[in-house]
């Protein structure tokens, strides 16, 4: 015979204790699971942010000029800033230096070696540029320009020579070509850059993928690409601003600039 009541009570106590333990374990388990869920939620948020960042970078880099180096901070069109005025207030030096613009042999060699329909068009552009340069050299008459005005006056006319053939046509055509990944244009650009560098011309270094600023509007004409999400971001640089240094009437170094062209996202 059981001492049932006592045993019953003990069993009850035992059951209660067991239940309490189980409950505690259950609650502990819930807590652990809750913590794990919270962690997963945070991880998800981080991952989503990471995805958005990557998307922005992908979109911004999609059409931007490919970088020359692995750091991707310098455009391949970038020409380091020249030191000093290219054409100073000195007749003989000016006379020698402006002749550099007529030295297009390397460019001609490159185009001749890549003989296609497209390179023929560039050859013709180069011919018209050379003609304009030769005309300029023949007709400049430095002796008719006052000493203090030599640098500014001649630089303005000299810089103007590059506008049509190079800044408006060749550079823009190359920009489109490299965007398409066409090797010809990458290689052509190397020759063009070398030539422009020799001619005293340089560029600003502006890259895509960043917020446009008032300074950018001073230096570049914008074109609009509609995209509300990235509104205000520079999507693409079609042409960097091109510059050349000169000396003004007070002997101070200044620059002339041919504005660049950029594409900016707008809502």
């Amino acid at each position: 015979m059981f001492y049932f009541d006592k045993e019953k009570q003990e069993v009850k106590d035992w059951i209660q204790a067991a239940v309490a333990v189980a409950e505690q374990k259950f609650y502990d388990r819930i807590l652990v699971l809750q913590n794990q869920v919270d962690e997963l939620k945070n991880t998800k948020a981080d991952l989503l942010r990471e995805i958005e960042n990557l998307k922005s970078q992908i979109a911004a880099n999609k059409n931007s000029t490919p970088a020359q180096n692995e750091n991707a901070t310098e455009s391949i069109f970038y020409l380091e800033e020249a030191t000093g005025a290219f054409l100073p207030n000195e007749r003989e030096e000016i006379s020698n230096k402006i002749k550099r613009a007529a030295n297009v042999d390397e460019l001609k060699k490159f185009l001749a070696a890549n003989d296609t329909e497209t390179s023929k068009k560039f050859q013709r552009l180069l011919e018209s540029h050379l003609k304009a340069v030769e005309n300029f050299i023949s007709n400049i008459h430095l002796e008719n320009i006052e000493d203090g005005e030599l640098s500014e006056t001649v630089t303005a006319k000299y810089f103007n020579l590059f506008q049509n053939a190079f800044f408006d046509n060749i550079i823009v055509a190359i920009s489109r070509g490299v965007r398409d990944g066409n090797i010809f244009y990458f290689e052509f650009l190397e020759s063009v850059n070398e030539y422009l560098r020799e001619c005293g011309i340089y560029t600003l270094n502006i890259t895509a993928g960043v917020q446009v600023t008032d300074e950018d509007y001073k230096n570049m004409t914008p074109q609009i690409r509609k995209n509300a999400k990235y509104a205000g971001i520079i999507a693409e640089i079609e042409r960097l601003p091109y510059r050349i240094n000169y000396l003004n009437e007070f002997g101070e170094q200044k620059f002339l600039q041919y504005n660049g062209v950029m594409t900016v996202y707008k809502a």
């Binding site: 497209t118 068009k121 560039f122 018209s128 823009v172 055509a173 489109r176 070509g177 398409d180």
Partner: peptide, 14 residues
Amino acid sequence: EINLPNVAKFDGKD
């Protein structure tokens, strides 16, 4: 002479 190389792309062609 009007010579604008690679000025546009139509139907995937320069």
